[in-house]
């Protein structure tokens, strides 16, 4: 069986500075991986490169998604293939109504996959169902994308999109940043509801706390642009107790 996501010896530069120095990571369908590590270890860079954010230069290695070269694809092609990045800081887009955005995005993905576009009533029905399960009031959907949303609302909106687009792999970039414990629990419940044997998740976080709610199958420790240790969920607890310092030298 082909792995869902294979990152092989990935080297990435941003403006002359190498951030990832040969990172390797394999994620299979159905698995939840956590990537932990201190600030500046390259966690967010990895998520951005997987999603196709401009401004990063890949100088070595490759990323395969279902065996296909992901780096050759435009960001929207990656989305249509089933790659979803939940942003650490979801942007506010004034003047673009959330509903209009959701429908345009969903139908663009479906069209790219050769599927029929959703009719308006079907789409509305689907959004309402998902919104209800995430406790997102209809009023929020009428506003501009993320405009005036609290931190928790923005993250819920990311999970709403995840539920709507049904991606094959979800990269959650510091989903816990800026969330209080209640907001975190709601967001984590939303993510857990989407766990399935066909879908993989990569949870990027500083803190072990999030992993109490989203329990990973595999934990990786990143330091200075490489994965320096991988293990089971108990590795996260170990890190919480001893900190990242022990890995700084290893890298």
């Amino acid at each position: 069986m082909t792995a869902l996501l294979e990152v092989k010896d990935l080297k990435v530069r941003v403006e002359e500075r190498e951030i990832l120095h040969g990172l390797t990571l394999t994620v299979n369908a159905g698995e939840v991986h956590a990537i932990m590590g201190p600030n500046g270890s390259g966690k967010s860079t990895l998520s951005h490169v997987i999603a196709g954010k401009p401004g990063y230069e890949v100088t070595g290695g490759e990323i395969l998604f279902k065996g296909e070269d992901l780096l050759e694809m435009e960001p929207n092609e990656r989305a249509a293939k089933g790659v979803f990045l939940a942003f650490q800081y979801p942007v506010e887009i004034p003047g673009v109504a959330t509903m209009n955005f959701l429908r345009t995005a969903l139908n663009a993905q479906r069209k790219a996959r050769g599927e029929s576009e959703f009719s308006t009533p079907d789409f509305l029905k689907k959004v309402r169902e998902v919104a209800k399960s995430l406790n997102i009031p209809q009023d929020m959907l009428k506003r501009g994308v993320n405009v005036g949303f609290s931190g928790g609302e923005k993250k819920r909106n990311e999970i709403l999109q995840m539920a709507l687009f049904e991606p094959a792999i979800c990269i959650l970039d510091e989903m816990d940043s800026g969330l209080d414990i209640d907001a975190l629990r709601v967001a984590a419940d939303g993510v857990n509801a989407l766990r399935s044997p066909e879908r993989a998740m990569v949870v990027i976080t500083h803190y072990q706390r999030l992993l109490n709610y989203i329990v990973p199958d595999v934990v990786h420790v990143m330091s200075k642009g490489r994965v320096v240790k991988s293990g089971g969920k108990e590795l996260a607890l170990e890190l919480e107790a001893s900190g990242y310092a022990q890995f700084e030298d290893a890298a």
Binding site: G52, E74, P75, N76, A80, V91, I93, T104, L106
Partner: peptide
């Protein structure tokens, strides 16, 4: 980038922002 990461082509993403 946010819009493109959600599946909109470059032109579509531009169009949505221009409309706004």
């Amino acid at each position: 980038f946010y819009l493109r990461a959600r599946g909109l082509s470059e032109k579509q993403a531009q169009a949505l922002l221009i409309q706004a």
